[in-house]
Design a protein around this nucleic acid. Structure first.
Lengths: 247, 247
DNA sequence: TGCGCGCATTGACACAGATCAAATGGGTTA
DNA sequence: TAACCCATTTGATCTGTGTCAATGCGCGCA
């Protein structure tokens, strides 16, 4: 088993997530305080970053890469409950353990803060805590969209919603108006999609085949999807307007 | 349509949720500040408290009663995405609209705070913001437990998990060790449970019948449940230990 | 070039939960 | 007390998705 690697810290001025992460509202002085308790760490694709119930002595921002949050029951049933992308926040101030497993799906770089000093800074820097509160509220909204999907959508609607969510985020992360035709590289395996959507891998596969047969999507290999008409895909999500779900 | 009623404020010293709500960590002086922007409001069972996308100019603590948060799609499919019980927090600082509908399921009393001044107090009173952050993180954890339930649990496991969650919240809100036998009054209808769990009302009813036949629960009327052996119920939740889900 | 490995697709069948429909029961009103 | 209402339960049947098993396909490696 590979261990996490310590790597040299990046200066905040060079940081690609400086203006989106938990530190985005901090001034120079406040950044310096954070800098005093920060250290970089990297994980390779497939590595476990944290396990449910085990101590995690830091909280962190994702600088680079993708990680999943998953709950697993003993009999193997697995539900993905979150996806961490660059600028997202990992860990829980005020508690030393997590309720879920965290796994790197690509190589991941973290900007870690020792937990205890970070908690103290939250009280000293109201804007830092305010930013973390807003990020947490956003995550809560996303989780609730996801609950609607898991509880009430059909397999076809789930797949369409997922594809649309990936389009929104990877093709056009800034929310500008979307063109009518999109090419899309799937960042996760069929199995991960199943765990994301509360489906089996076979059902995921069958729905892909069905959407292809109906002309909603075109497949190029297994990992690349073309969407000839985005509004047709939106019509398949089961949502009132635009597909709701934001990953 | 009935309108929300303004009712006289209760003094914080008399407040039944004084030590659990968002204000629980405030001292006398800070309470006085909150008192300046607070007003009580009550809703009758069945009334709409807020609608998705419409402005809500206050945030609030639930003093008494039960309210649901729901997402509804046009064809009528409904997913409950949250349940508000006394001491829970309603509304989103920093944003004037909600993403979901809020409905009173019993008569509800709210301790409301005008939103803008409340947001200012969050920055002035770090402990208030810290408390709200902790409550939001707890909600996020609960939402994630719920996602596991919606995505991967069977109908029987869902019902057992819900019953256990209600036991934890209403019979013993302080987390003291639970006795072996519990009496439990269900705060919501079968339909609401179905919307909570991603099931139809008929399936909910059948699972109640099945759990009764298997001796896991006893019914007294339709709204009261006796749980002769809590650990037996825990064994039905599908969770590793104690049923995870916290409402 | 061919073998093996992992992921994905396809097929046949089973079953949990949905759907449609009818019966029950408790509470409220006249 | 009867009539009605509404939530709930129960029954019969249907169907979407899971399960189990076989096959296909791309890719690295010998």
């Amino acid at each position: 088993m590979l261990a996490a690697k310590h790597i040299p810290n990046l200066a905040c001025g060079e940081c690609p997530i400086r203006h989106r992460a938990v530190c985005s509202t901090c001034d120079e002085d406040e950044l310096a305080q954070l800098d005093g308790v920060k250290f970089y760490r990297s994980y390779q694709a497939g590595q476990t970053i944290a396990l449910r119930g085990y101590a995690l002595d830091y909280v962190a921002s994702i600088v680079e890469g993708t990680a999943t949050l998953e709950r697993v029951i003993e009999d193997g049933r697995t539900q993905m409950i979150g996806l961490l992308l660059p600028s997202d926040f990992l860990g829980r101030p005020g508690r030393g353990t997590l309720q879920y497993d965290v796994t790197a799906v690509t190589d991941v770089t973290l900007c870690c803060f020792q937990r205890k000093p970070f908690e103290a800074l939250l009280l000293d820097i109201p804007h830092l805590q305010e930013r973390l509160l807003q990020m947490t509220l956003d995550e809560l909204d996303a989780a609730r969209d996801w609950m609607l999907l898991l509880g009430r959508k059909t397999a076809r609607e789930k797949i369409a919603s997922l594809l649309l969510a990936i389009v929104k985020r990877t093709v056009n992360p800034d929310g500008k108006s979307l063109g009518t035709r999109s090419r899309l590289e799937l960042p996760i395996s069929r199995e991960a999609m199943g765990n994301f959507l509360g489906l089996t891998i076979e059902t995921v596969s069958r729905q892909f085949t069905a959407l292809k047969k109906d002309g909603v999507i075109e497949l190029e290999g297994k990992r690349v999807v073309h969407i000839p008409d985005l509004s047709a895909l939106m019509g398949e999500t089961g949502d009132d307007e635009d597909g709701g779900l934001i990953v």
